[in-house]
Structure formats: structure tokens, C-alpha cells
């Protein structure tokens, strides 16, 4: 990185070639282990106050990436720069103090709340952990919890109830309340809507947007819903098999998707209007196993526009125009010779 630190400060989060692999022993007596490449060389940037989307199929490594960014998983390689600080090697106490400024909202509002805690305890979890740093006593924690309950639209008497007494939407509100209690600057939203009824999604989405405006939050919004993502994010990263295949401004998502994978995803978005209905691009087969990543472009076994070169060589992310970046041989033909 040659950027000066002042430009670094504008970004709440930068990852550079972040990789996360899991290792699994092949057999009981085998010394070899399989590598499961969940996230591979992902570089993203999130400006402060920005909402950035991360879209991909199930199992493509979105969640792993979201957790690696928060250092809930130890990254295998690469760098994470958070608010201008390289936090890749943070551990123990330093890491813990970081938790105040970065938070996570989970996909499943059922399993992410401790069934034995009251709502009051759940929301105050973080506040208690940083009681000393925040210089809060019991009284101020109680009033902070009440304030948050009001913010997330739950009645005050909810604080003495247990999670199982609430519906999915209310539980997700509680999760959001817990995440904002410490006033973080950055929140990873890991598919916060996918476990909810369609009727409730807009409520939760509005709540997230309100809080963002009020607290100046930045979101990394992980989702597989293209419409919602494009409506709230300024930029979108498309992920396939743990790699970023395309980065584009959300205005471009439906207008000008370049990567065949993005095009296929968009063609799968249901459309009621028969006029607007696009021709479906049906992807053959499943996502390849992250244990055996195909040679060349990882998408080539399923790509409808596959070429010879895709099977042999891996394309690199190339800037097309403005903020639009794509990694596909289709858009690199003029440069093919250089890369050899």
C-alpha cells in the first residue's frame, strides 16, 4: 500500500488478499490433510458511512469472510486494516477492545441468542464486557438498555423476557439492538433478512437504515438477495467459491452485469411482469467443492460462455470502467497476449 495514512482513514475497512482455509485430516492415520479454501485472496474496501454488499450462492464463503474480517476466525493470510490500523495480528486484550467498534448481526435470530439470558442481559452483554472502558455503572447500563429497546421498537417490559417469547422479527431486532449497544462504527450484517418472513424484511431493513443514518454506521451487507442488496448498497461485490469475481456500483447491477456468473444470478431473480421477464440462464451442476477448486477460472465448469483459455488460466480482476471491476477472460481478450 502506497496510500498515505490520511486516505487510509477514509476507509473503515480494507482487506488485502485475505485468505481463510480450513484443514481437515484425510483419514484416521493419514498425515495429509485436505485444504478447504473458503476465502481466497479477497480484497475489498469499505469507506466509512458506506454500505457495501457481498453477494453469492450458499456456501461460497460469504459468512466465513464476514467472520474473518471480524477476526472471529483467524485469517490464513492477507491483511485486515480496520480504521487505519492493521489488526491482522491482534490478539487477546487488543482484539477484545476492538470488539467495541466492530459488530456482527447473525443470519439466524433463533440460534444467536442465548436461550438462558433475559433480553436485558442480551442487550447489555457488550456493555458489561466493557464496563470499565465505558465507565458505566449498573444504573447507566439499565438506562442504555431501555434506550436501545426504544430504538429497536420493543416495549420496555421486553427486557425481563426470554428470547423464546419473541417472534423471529423481534428476535432479529434484539440482535440488532445488541450489536448497536456498544455504538460500533462498522457492522457485518450476515444475511440478516434471510431467516425472516417477507413481510417483516422491510421493517428490519428500515431499522438498519435508520440506525445507519443516526450513528453513521458502515455496513458490510452479506446477502444472496440481489434486489435488496442493490437497493441499500452503494457498491456490490460478487463472490464465487471464495473469490471476488466482480465488483460494481449497485446502479450497474441490473443494467450492466459483466461476469457470466452475475448475469446468471440476475436472470434467476423472479420477475412478475411478463414483459420484463428475462431469459433464464440455467447454471449446470453445483458449486464445485472448495476442496477441489477447478483449474483455471473457478467458474468454468458451469459457465455458459466458457472458452478454452478459461480451463487453463485464471483471469485476474481488471478494471473495466470507473468502479466496475471484473475477473473474466471475456473482457480481457485484448490483453491476453500481455499476460502470457
Amino acid at each position: 500500500m502506497n496510500d498515505s495514512s490520511s486516505t487510509l482513514k477514509n476507509y473503515v475497512l480494507i482487506t488485502e488478499n485475505l485468505c481463510k482455509s480450513f484443514y481437515k485430516k484425510k483419514g484416521l492415520f493419514s498425515r495429509q490433510s485436505e485444504t478447504i479454501r473458503a476465502v481466497h485472496q479477497v480484497s475489498i474496501k469499505i469507506e466509512s458511512g458506506e454500505t457495501v454488499g457481498l453477494v453469492g450462492e450458499s456456501g461460497c464463503g460469504k459468512t466465513t469472510f464476514g467472520r474473518a474480517v471480524l477476526k472471529l476466525y483467524e485469517p490464513t493470510s492477507g491483511r485486515i486494516i480496520f480504521q487505519g490500523k492493521d489488526i491482522t495480528s491482534f490478539r487477546g486484550r487488543h482484539l477484545r477492545s476492538l470488539r467495541q467498534s466492530m459488530q456482527l448481526i447473525f443470519q439466524d435470530p433463533y440460534s444467536s441468542l442465548n436461550p438462558r439470558f433475559k433480553i436485558r442481559q442480551i442487550i447489555a452483554e457488550g456493555l458489561y464486557n466493557f464496563k470499565k472502558d465505558l465507565q458505566m455503572d449498573k444504573k447507566s447500563i439499565v438506562s442504555a438498555v431501555n434506550h436501545i429497546l426504544q430504538k429497536i421498537g420493543l416495549p420496555e417490559d421486553a427486557s425481563e423476557k426470554y428470547p423464546h417469547q419473541f417472534s423471529g422479527g423481534q428476535r432479529q431486532r434484539i440482535c440488532i439492538g445488541r450489536a448497536i449497544a456498544l455504538r460500533p462504527g462498522f457492522i457485518v450484517c450476515d444475511e440478516p433478512l434471510s431467516a425472516l418472513d417477507v413481510s417483516i424484511r422491510s421493517q428490519i431493513l428500515n431499522l438498519l437504515l435508520e440506525l445507519k443514518n443516526e450513528y453513521g454506521l458502515s455496513y458490510l451487507f452479506i446477502s444472496h438477495d440481489l434486489k435488496i442488496t442493490s437497493s441499500i448498497c452503494s457498491r456490490i461485490y460478487i463472490m464465487y467459491l471464495g473469490e471476488i469475481v466482480e465488483e460494481l456500483p449497485s446502479t450497474q447491477l441490473f443494467a450492466n452485469p459483466l461476469h457470466p456468473y452475475t448475469q446468471a444470478l440476475i436472470s434467476a431473480v423472479p420477475e412478475f411482469d411478463a414483459e420484463k421477464r428475462r431469459k433464464r440462464i440455467i447454471l449446470e451442476g453445483d458449486v464445485p467443492s472448495p476442496v477441489n477448486i477447478p483449474e483455471g477460472c473457478p467458474f468454468h465448469p458451469r459457465c455458459p460462455k466458457v472458452m478454452d483459455i478459461c480451463r487453463k488460466k485464471k483471469p485476474h480482476l481488471r478494471q473495466k470502467d470507473g468502479n466496475h471491476t471484473v475477473s473474466c477472460w471475456l473482457y480481457e481478450n485484448q490483453r491476453t497476449e500481455d499476460t502470457r
Binding site: 471480524l70 470488539r99 456482527l104 447473525f106 440460534s111 441468542l113 445488541r178 456498544l182
Partner: peptide, 26 residues
């Protein structure tokens, strides 16, 4: 591996707290 344990760690709880308040009661 439960999500609320991950949540507790994300919330900045110490290992001792995670074990004593989130895991052992269960």
C-alpha cells in the same frame, strides 16, 4: 459452535466468561 457463543465472543466477552456464562450452564 453455537451461534450465541460466537456472538458472545464478537461482543468482547473473555474466554472465562464465555465458558462460565454461555457454555457450562447448558
Amino acid at each position: 459452535e453455537q451461534e450465541y457463543v460466537t456472538a458472545a465472543r464478537a461482543m468482547g466477552a473473555t474466554d472465562l466468561k464465555v465458558i462460565a456464562l454461555y457454555i457450562l450452564p447448558n
